[in-house]
Write a protein that binds this DNA or RNA. Structure first.
Lengths: 156, 156
DNA sequence: CAATATTACTTAATATGTTAAATAATATCC
DNA sequence: GGATATTATTTAACATATTAAGTAATATTG
């Protein structure tokens, strides 16, 4: 922002006009928005002692029933190495259970357990309020458009 | 997806209809889109041996000139503890330098160095091509709308 | 059907994310 | 002006992200 850097900035942009500046960058904008949207959810979950990733795992299992690890990772938007560790830790705490599949013993099925369901119950209402707040801020139509555009990016 | 879990799923949704299901969740959609957009950038940067966060730091410094750590963290979308570590490592590698501010000795100013500029030069064209690809996929108007909506979320 | 390839998951190593606490310098208040 | 509060940065501790390599089971192929 200093005047001496402004000249340099313009000089560089003159020969690299193709790339949008960082304040118009899609990756950065997505990261910022994600952070803002995650923050209240993270704060809510502190009381339950779980992370947003663990919350996503519980919600996916509650919605879709028992899943194999690969599908669960995809649905909860986690990479397999992360999922492995998180599910191990959640199993130790009794939130989920794992059983080896009998048809294919490479696979395992992860299920939500009573303790995990309790966490869902304790947070579902507040999570809905948080989601509603963002819907109200953006408006239903803009939120719908946003989700569609984000989906389009995901499906590339 | 199994039929025995479908009944459970519906039963739960009946009494918790307020919260959108995970496949319509804004946090998850943002995370997925971010991942898709970041992937080609990360792959590009492998050749230079830096991460996307280090790339953001270099780009912000190149655009805006020397910055104090707090501003740099804000602009590069990093938390201060992350910035501290990353800048330390980048300083050791000669990509950036740090000097303590004389007006306020709590502050320090971070500057990009020749080695850092070289990395920018080596990747700017390809970064522009990647950015263009997303612009072409979405269309200029939809990208503009997306950035505006994301900004609106950020400014909450 | 045995060698090879693929798949599902795990482990390892390194980097970043996140919260809390520590540190040092500056600002504020009585 | 000295006690106290605030600010800028760092450190610590733990959790996740990412890439690569490892392992065990299944699938494929000659």
């Amino acid at each position: 922002m200093s005047s001496q850097s402004t000249k340099k900035h313009e000089a560089i942009n003159a020969r690299t006009a193709l790339l949008p500046s960082t304040d118009r960058s899609l990756p950065i904008a997505l990261t910022r928005a994600r952070e803002k949207v995650m923050l209240p959810i993270r704060q809510m979950l502190i009381a339950s002692g779980i992370t947003e990733q663990q919350w996503r795992i519980l919600r996916v299992l509650q919605e879709q029933g028992p899943l194999d690890s690969t599908t669960l990772a995809e649905q909860a938007c986690l990479l397999m190495p992360s999922l492995t560790r998180i599910v191990q830790s959640m199993e130790e705490k009794g939130f989920v259970s794992r059983v080896v599949s009998q048809e294919d013993r490479r696979r395992q099925t992860v299920s939500i357990e009573a303790k995990g369901r309790t966490i869902i119950q304790n947070n579902l209402d507040e999570a809905a309020i948080i989601a509603k707040r963002f819907e109200d801020v953006l408006g239903k139509q803009k939120l719908k458009t946003l989700l569609e555009t984000l989906k389009q990016l995901d499906e590339l």
